[in-house]
Design a binder for these strands. Structure first.
Lengths: 149, 149
DNA sequence: GTAATTGCAAAGGATTTGCTCTGGT
DNA sequence: ACCAGAGCAAATCCTTTGCAATTAC
């Protein structure tokens, strides 16, 4: 088994695709679900949705794809008040935050350049580096407020 | 079994003390640990600290007390990036946010009246009610940055 | 063909709960 | 005495991992 060609590098990504490189039925299914679900959903909910649609995808696989998609930037992730991670397709590429309905997951992207600057400045003032920040607003959207209490 | 006295109401709190009403050795131990630990710590870390000190307190009890203290407002709680809840005694009574070292838990309270107003306003604009918000800044404090990478 | 992916099932880790026992008051 | 509170193990929940079986390319 001679290899006159140069050994291919341990490539981890493919341009245009992401961390995961093969076009599998499962990858497509997860992306598809995210493309169609408008609001934030947990991995478990997405998994349930897939099963509902008759797609046969393992829960672990759903988790793996969501993580990969999130890393690749095509999917937003946030932690809800219970500590569960919710995912949603990312509309804009830019950094932003969310106003999210705690009941139905409906979410509005809110731009917050001012917040970013504030965070950076506060951190700098105290000599902190490698800054990350979390800004989430939760509430009841009008619809859910009407329905529930 | 006559009861000539009036039945006492199902009192849940005691003025000056909190959700939990009895002065137990364990309650005191948890409060004490919080009083002395300057930075954010997980329930498990606080439990470990207590054992280190020779205090015999069950983990569940630590969780129960931390929750109670948090509800009573004497203790701040935040979720770190891994999703774990961290606790720390609350210096000021007022609402505030934190700039927290992801490595050692050291934390600076940052006042953010502007953020509050912004959150309220964003929520109102979209008709959301029963608003809650999360604003956390994580980074490496100067000391940890020097020590690590 | 061969390495990336899957799918379970098991493992992990934080938190909560059931229930009996203990100790404040 | 009475009942809030403690202990501890079992139960929950979300998420990750190990590994053999698949499957894209």
């Amino acid at each position: 088994m001679t290899m006159s060609e140069s050994p291919r590098p341990p490539q981890r990504t493919v341009p245009g695709r992401g961390t995961r490189v093969r076009a599998t039925r499962q990858a497509e299914a997860v992306s598809q679900a995210l493309a169609e679900l408008p609001e934030f959903r947990s991995a478990q909910e997405i998994h349930a949705e897939l099963r509902r649609r008759g797609e046969r995808v393992g829960l672990a696989t759903v988790y793996r794809h969501l993580q990969a998609l999130h890393q690749d930037g095509g999917v937003d992730a946030l932690r809800d008040e219970r500590g569960e991670v919710l995912y949603r397709r990312c509309d804009t590429g830019a950094h932003h935050h969310h106003l999210t309905c705690r009941s139905c997951g409906r979410s509005v992207e809110v731009e917050a350049a001012a917040i970013e600057r504030w965070a950076e400045q506060v951190a700098a003032e105290h000599g902190f580096t490698e800054i990350d920040h979390t800004v989430e607003i939760f509430g009841l959207c009008p619809d859910c407020a009407r329905r529930n209490g």
